[in-house]
């Protein structure tokens, strides 16, 4: 068997949002850790501000 297509093919029914392998070089890349850290910060900041208010 060769590789076939690299578009996710038969597995693509997994989620509502589709992600392909090809990406634009010009686009901004975010590290997954950044997302998690941002999420934690958002939660903490909102919570702290709620305490102050």
């Amino acid at each position: 068997m060769d590789k076939g297509q690299n578009t996710g093919g038969l597995m693509s029914s997994a989620g509502l949002v589709r992600y392909f392998d090809s990406e634009d070089e010009k686009g901004i890349r975010i590290d997954p850790k950044t997302i998690i850290v941002f999420g934690l910060l958002l939660g903490v900041v909102v919570q702290v501000l709620s305490f102050i208010a």
Binding site: G15, Y19, P32, I35, F38, G39, L42
Partner: peptide, 27 residues
Amino acid sequence: AQIFVGGILILYMDEVVSKWGVGSGVG
């Protein structure tokens, strides 16, 4: 602003799971 940022964050959390984890974030 908070709800909006939270909504966008969900989208990116889904993307992290889809690309780095098992299954999809939405699921």
